[in-house]
């Protein structure tokens, strides 16, 4: 985590009540440039409210939000929002605007030159696998759900904001589309440098996308940390229970080959006749390795370790994490 730079987002002691109901209570966190924070928790835990307080769609009752060191309350809300990308689950494309016009909304508000806007729109559409020639002139209702969400993403990124807020961006999509868009999302060059806050209740999604996760329950912070910290160093019972159902799947996705085989992995020193699949490295997760090992088009003899060896090492690694936690 780069610490020499000031935080891009600083939230301190943020609280919000709706009537007598405390939706967000005393939440604080800081976000460095380029970091992705996932707000995770069960439905009604206050994560969406917390997100909307960042761009002032909801005003806090107490506490402050600073973006780039400036209190958001000191800025006109619309000007603040134009500098922050915003993606929501229902997409919310303007139904009477074409795809291109939807994407151009913020750049136009910011007074960008029409030619520049057109170039940018075409570039974004291309990168999101929506050929501009075909899609730019279409109206939102002509698009599939996945296509709409891609346009929503393009719209949020159109003015190249340094910060992007995403409220369950993949929540309305079917599992297959969701997985493919999530992959695209992760691989999108455009997003690498962004500071992002993403709301979800999907644990797998959180683990896949987060640098850090802020787990909320009933408006209160339960734990803020990396996925690995939440999984192996749960701060309380709630955190532990929250991941219990998918514990094994998450562990498989979290631990890497480096974690299970050590700094100098065994397969590197194996015999010369043993080829390593190109995509295997120290950061490959156990889950990915397992998928490769069990897929039918890879010859078993060509692999540096067997499933049994991998699982044994995985078990030992889990034991190590467990012990470290108990100590």
């Amino acid at each position: 985590m780069p610490t020499n730079q000031p935080p891009v987002v600083r939230v301190s002691r943020l609280s919000k009540h709706f009537g007598a109901h405390a939706v967000v209570q005393d939440v604080s966190f800081e976000l460095a440039a380029g970091e992705t924070l996932v707000l995770l928790g069960p439905s009604g835990c206050g994560k969406t409210t917390l997100l909307k307080m960042l761009n002032r769609l909801i005003e806090p009752d107490a506490g402050t939000v600073e973006i780039n060191g400036q209190d958001v309350l000191a800025q006109r809300p619309e000007l603040l929002r134009r500098g922050i990308g915003y993606v929501i689950q229902q997409v919310g494309l303007l139904p009477h605007y074409t795809v291109a016009e939807n994407i151009a909304v913020v750049p136009r508000l910011l007074g960008h030159a029409p030619a520049a806007i057109a170039d940018r729109t075409a570039a974004l559409l291309t990168r999101l696998h929506l050929p501009p020639a075909r899609f730019a002139g279409q109206l939102p209702h002509q698009l599939s759900g996945g296509q709409q969400q891609r346009v929503g993403l393009a719209r949020a990124l159109a003015a190249d904001p340094p910060i992007v807020l995403l409220d369950e961006p993949f929540g309305a999509l079917d599992p297959l589309t969701r997985a493919s868009i999530r992959r695209e999302f992760r691989e999108l060059e455009e997003l690498r440098s962004k500071t992002m806050v993403l709301v979800t209740h999907d644990v797998t999604e959180a683990f896949e996308l987060a640098d850090r996760i802020l787990l909320l329950d009933a408006g209160r912070m339960q734990q803020l940390g990396t996925p690995r910290e939440l999984l192996f160093r749960p701060a309380n019972d709630f955190v532990r229970r929250f991941f219990a159902a998918e514990r094994l799947a998450l562990q498989l996705r979290t631990l890497t080959l480096e974690d299970v085989f050590g700094e100098t992995p065994r397969w590197n020193t194996a015999g010369a006749n043993c080829r390593t699949p190109d995509n295997f490295n120290t950061q490959t997760t156990v889950n990915e390795a397992l998928e490769a090992l069990t897929s039918t088009d890879t010859a078993p003899s060509a692999l540096p370790f067997t499933v049994a060896e991998l699982m044994a090492a995985f078990g030992q690694a889990l034991q190590r994490e467990e012990d470290a936690w108990k100590r």
Partner: peptide, 8 residues
């Protein structure tokens, strides 16, 4: 909501 979120 999206329109407001975009800064209209």
């Amino acid at each position: 909501e999206a329109a407001r979120g975009l800064g209209l």
